[in-house]
C-alpha cells in the first residue's frame, strides 16, 4: 500500500486519506455566467500528468494540498494549504487560487513516491 506524507501527521497509509478533488479557482459568482458556473461545478481538468488536489487525512480531519502525477501515481509533494497559498502569492483570505501547478514554481521538497 502506498504511503502519503500528511503535513500534520507524517507518512501514513494511503487508506487513511480521502481525495478531495482538484484544486480549482472559484470564479467570481457575481461576474460568472451560468455556463461558466456550470463548468466550474461539473468539469475537471483531469490532466494526463501533474495534478494539484485537496487531500484529507481522515482520522485527524486535516486538509492539505498534494501534487500528484496521474501517469505514475507518484505523490510528488504534499504541503499545507498555507504553504500552497504562499506559493501562489495569495496569502490572506479568499479562495484557494490556481488552476494547475506550474512545476517550475515548486521545489522538490519532501517528495514521496
Amino acid at each position: 500500500m502506498k504511503l502519503m506524507r500528511c503535513p500534520l501527521n507524517g507518512e501514513r497509509n494511503i487508506s487513511e486519506f480521502v481525495c478531495g478533488g482538484e484544486v480549482k479557482a472559484m470564479p467570481d459568482p457575481d461576474k460568472a455566467s451560468d455556463a461558466d458556473w456550470g463548468r466550474y461545478l461539473f468539469f475537471e481538468d483531469n490532466p494526463d500528468g501533474e495534478i494539484v488536489e485537496w487531500w484529507l487525512h481522515a482520522p485527524s480531519s486535516y486538509w492539505f494540498i498534494a501534487r500528484r502525477d496521474t501517469r505514475t501515481e507518484a505523490v510528488l509533494e504534499t504541503m499545507t494549504v498555507q504553504e500552497w497559498r504562499e506559493r501562489q502569492g495569495t496569502v490572506g483570505s479568499g479562495q484557494a487560487q490556481g488552476q494547475s501547478a506550474d512545476s517550475q514554481a515548486h521545489g522538490a521538497q519532501g517528495t514521496n513516491g
Binding site: 478531495g20 480531519s61 486535516y62 486538509w63 497559498r85 490572506g92 479568499g94 479562495q95
Partner: peptide, 20 residues
C-alpha cells in the same frame, strides 16, 4: 458537514475554531 467546514475554511482562512 464538519469535513466540508474544515476544507472551506482552509481556503477562506477565517479566524474561527471549528470543533465536532
Amino acid at each position: 458537514v464538519y469535513r466540508e467546514m474544515l476544507r472551506e475554511n482552509a481556503s477562506w482562512g477565517l479566524a474561527v475554531d471549528i470543533a465536532n
